[in-house]
Design a protein around this nucleic acid. Structure first.
Lengths: 270, 270
DNA sequence: CCAACTTTGTGCACACGTTCACAAGCGGTA
DNA sequence: TACCGCTTGTGAACGTGTGCACAAAGTTGG
């Protein structure tokens, strides 16, 4: 996935050099806060998403009492190449020990810090239909750190009714309620026609991050970050692969039989 | 976003040249079916996802009685660059008229054909909790073409109960039921610990495409296509952006005040 | 203290995707 | 028919992300 956003202007004009303090580094553990900040800006989006995956895998390992992991172990558990994993981790700093691996606790701490999980992020869900209901009932959202603190809908029958312990407010109250409860992430689970209007109100209320489940391309000012989860697109992409597969089978038939073509690379699957 | 998959081996060893029949092209409208097949294999994943978006936008335009669209119009409606849009469309063929634009109907037809939407794809939902319930109730799934024909759960209290018009079966019946109803797409909405086992059964049942909502890295044989929708990851990526933004504000403070930095590029927002 | 082994961190090359810029082609007009 | 303006389709440059391969660095055993 790839998130669409409202026209990000050319980021090509970044500062020419990273102060060169990066290379010299007289003492091993310098570059405390400021360098970390500089690095944070350079982490590719895809790597950020993977860091979140690593974090979950690491949490699982921690619960099972693992003290350290090698990049190889962590990589197979996360379903990625070990080189990629190491590169991803290098974006946030050098917290591994050569010849040994990474300390699970340290890695968890650092990833959480980079992802901003040390702070709680209030979540508001707008649109309490099937999906909104499900989201609200997650209660505390994935793995805590993202408490759902506000619910909104237009339906007067729903307003006031508590869902998952939180009373539903009317969408007209978005600005007030979001401000009061310091909502930092808005989740849009409304029907398509309502999505843009809801989005506008969230933005107006100062919400800077939006997770959009409505199959609509949202227009937002470019200081707002939008991520989209689009069920229809996911299914259609899968459909494409079904079709491609069917075509391949129909076409490359007379050549090598109908069996799957041989696998050269060693599968890492256990 | 990027979908993880079970190690795709180097596609670098593709046929050396596309038969060179591509370049010469004596007659304008040759390259009927076979070329379309060859092309289909070359469409980048990201482009496929966007084609699905274009399709939705086009459907909306068709309903409003539009006969033709220019790449520019369609691009802004889909929230992308017009050059990118044209390149994406070029992957599926040349169906535009220079100086005019694209015929909406034709484009819809062609995109549907490429995405394999001319055929119906039965969907099975496994795990009828909050989310599974919501998915089952969509009834016919996004925009039809993806009828939900089977539901599964372990809970004996749910088995036999109809949800959204379809009775829930026990997950032990996955192979039989999936075969009977010719399920081609499996949706996993179970708790994390059950996901891999469920996935294995789906694969065993011959399902080749899986949409995974469970926060787990699935291991599948490489003829199976997996797409992942991970709520936790989405939120954590947003959290990262909040943090980055906070850092920026705290750091680049003394320079240009606290207002948003000026926007150079012309916003396309209406 | 040294040598052998292990694993990280990263420079480099490659591949993929995006963007630019323009020739090719079509419709409208005189 | 010839010209003009407009929009497509695409070759080529560019930027980003991925994967390889190896030096750097640490640990363990003698």
């Amino acid at each position: 996935m790839a998130a669409q956003r409202g026209q990000r202007n050319g980021v090509g004009d970044t500062p020419p050099a990273p102060t060169a303090a990066e290379i010299t580094t007289p003492i091993p553990r310098v570059a405390e806060v400021p360098a970390a900040r500089d690095r944070a800006r350079a982490i590719p989006e895809a790597a950020v998403a993977r860091l979140a995956v690593y974090l979950r895998v690491l949490s699982g390992m921690q619960e099972q009492g693992a003290g350290t992991v090698s990049s190889e172990e962590l990589a197979v558990a996360a379903g990625v190449n070990s080189a990629k994993l190491r590169k991803d981790l290098s974006y946030i700093g050098s917290y591994g020990t050569r010849g040994v691996g990474y300390e699970v606790v340290v890695l968890i701490e650092e990833i959480e810090r980079i992802l901003g999980l040390t702070r709680k992020h209030s979540v508001a869900v707008v649109g309490i239909g099937n999906l909104g209901h499900a989201l609200a009932n997650y209660g505390g959202f994935p793995g805590r750190g993202f408490p759902v603190t506000a619910l909104f809908d237009v339906d007067p029958d729903l307003v006031g009714v508590p869902v998952g312990g939180i009373p539903v407010d009317h969408i007209d109250d978005i600005p007030r309620v979001c401000a009061e409860r310091e909502v930092s992430i808005g989740v849009i689970a409304t029907p398509p026609p309502a999505a843009q209007a809801v989005c506008d109100r969230l933005v107006e209320a100062g919400v800077q991050c939006i997770l959009n489940f409505a199959p609509v391309v949202l227009q937002v000012p470019d200081h707002v970050e939008v991520r989209k989860v689009d069920l229809a697109v996911e299914l259609q992409v899968l459909s494409f692969h079904v079709a491609r597969r069917a075509d391949d089978a129909a076409q490359g038939d007379g050549v090598a039989g109908m069996g799957p073509d041989l696998q050269v690379n060693g599968m890492v699957v256990s």
